[in-house]
Amino acid sequence: MPSLDSDARQLRLLIDGVADHAIYLLDPEGYLRSWNTGGERIKGYTAEEVIGTHFSRFYTPEDAANGAPARGLRIAREEGRFTAEGWRVRKDGSRFHASVVIDPILEGGELIGYAKVTRDTTERFQHEERLGVARDALLQSQKLEAIGKLTLGLAHDFNNLLNIVINSLELVEHYTLEPKAKRHLQGAMRAAERGALLTRQLLTFGKGHALIAERHAVGRIIGEAMDTLRRACRAGVTLEAHLAEDLPEIDVDREHLEAALLNLVSNSRDAMPGGGHIAITASLRDCAPPHATDQPASRFVCIEVSDDGEGIATEDLVRVFEPFFTTKDIGKGSGLGLSQVFGFARQSGGFAELKSAPGAGTTVSVCLPVSRESE
């Protein structure tokens, strides 16, 4: 009958019994002298394949080239322990995230090797990454919600004042016959109407503009708007639509959707002063909104407007949907186009996303929910 009386046997059984940690010994130069079942399970190598080889084989090529294996041994030797987290490579070439500890083994004050313990932390690392993304999305959503509330109050007051100005100008124009005065009045009226348009965009962002949602086929709306959208493009800018077949109908305010598409196409046009290509696509997507990743996935019709223009700087991406924020030169944009798109999508029960990188173009997605009756 097997016995546990031997200390060496007890230690061997103990180390082999730890299946979720790779535990092994290295000589002073970093060559493997032992291997356990945890190492085989995590990294895919048998003892025969790795004993006698250098432990740098487990590192990514870039870390190995940067001297990470030797640096870990040096720190362990000089400081008494080395701990780190990073990516490692399995036998099949796949990468996993690992927590690593290296301890020096001394005998009579002389270094005779190292004890190395590796734990697979990929699942924890990915979970923390998802939590970080969700946390950032929630904070961004809360910030935009707060800006929306402030914007809503200001826009309402400003809209009321503009209505008084416009009504007064119409009355004055009615009683004024002098041509020069009429021209000045008409200029003032155009400026007031421009201000009214801006307040409507602010009201849309702040969810203060009532939407009239009706059942529509997105493909039909886009198809009928293409002539208008093409006229918004300058010479040298091409526009095409690629729409998935059999898209379900959705409940949407057609006028606001068309305005959102015009805003996005105009932004893409302005991002390509030397010409380029704009593509509009529509497809079904099953997902949770980025501001509510803990919710179960729902079905959305997602309309994407993509261009191959200048792209947007990484540090500006978190602000692109804020009212009055713009990457355009002064005087070339109000900064309300994307905020109107964002507000429209949220008020419609969906969401808007923007993906971009400098020199790699921009894609804006407007995702609108599919009603249960259409599923």
Rank of each mutant, 00 (worst) to 15 (best):
P2Q: 11
P2C: 04
S6Q: 08
R9Y: 03
Q10P: 02
D27S: 07
G30C: 09
Y31M: 09
R33W: 08
W35M: 05
V50I: 15
G52L: 03
T53R: 11
H54S: 10
S56W: 09
S56V: 11
T60S: 09
D63P: 00
A64E: 12
A68M: 11
A68E: 12
R71T: 10
E79W: 01
A84W: 10
G86W: 03
W87T: 14
R88H: 13
R88M: 12
V89Y: 01
K91N: 03
R95G: 09
F96V: 14
H97T: 02
I102E: 09
L106D: 10
E110R: 15
T122R: 00
E123M: 05
F125R: 15
Q126D: 13
E128V: 13
L131I: 13
G132T: 14
V133L: 11
A134Y: 15
R135A: 12
L138P: 02
L139T: 12
S141E: 06
G148L: 00
G153T: 07
N163V: 09
N163P: 01
V165K: 12
L169Y: 07
L169A: 05
E170K: 14
L171F: 06
V172R: 08
H174P: 04
K182F: 00
R183T: 09
H184N: 12
G187N: 15
E193G: 02
R194F: 00
R194G: 03
G195M: 04
T199R: 00
T199Y: 02
Q201D: 14
Q201N: 13
T204S: 05
F205V: 00
R215D: 06
A225N: 06
M226R: 05
L229E: 07
R231M: 06
A232G: 08
R234N: 02
V237Y: 11
V237R: 13
E240R: 15
H242F: 06
L243S: 06
A244Q: 14
E245R: 08
D246S: 14
L247C: 04
I250Q: 01
D253K: 00
H256R: 08
E258A: 01
L261K: 05
L261W: 06
L264Q: 04
V265N: 05
V265K: 10
N267M: 01
G276D: 03
H277I: 03
I278A: 05
I280F: 08
C287V: 15
H291V: 03
A297D: 13
S298F: 04
V305L: 02
V305D: 01
S306E: 12
G309N: 04
L317G: 06
R319N: 15
E322F: 05
F324E: 01
T327M: 03
D329A: 08
D329S: 07
I330Y: 14
K332Q: 13
G337Q: 01
F342D: 08
P358Q: 13
A360P: 02
T362V: 10
V364W: 01
S365Q: 11
C367G: 05
S371Q: 10
R372G: 14
E373V: 07
S374F: 00
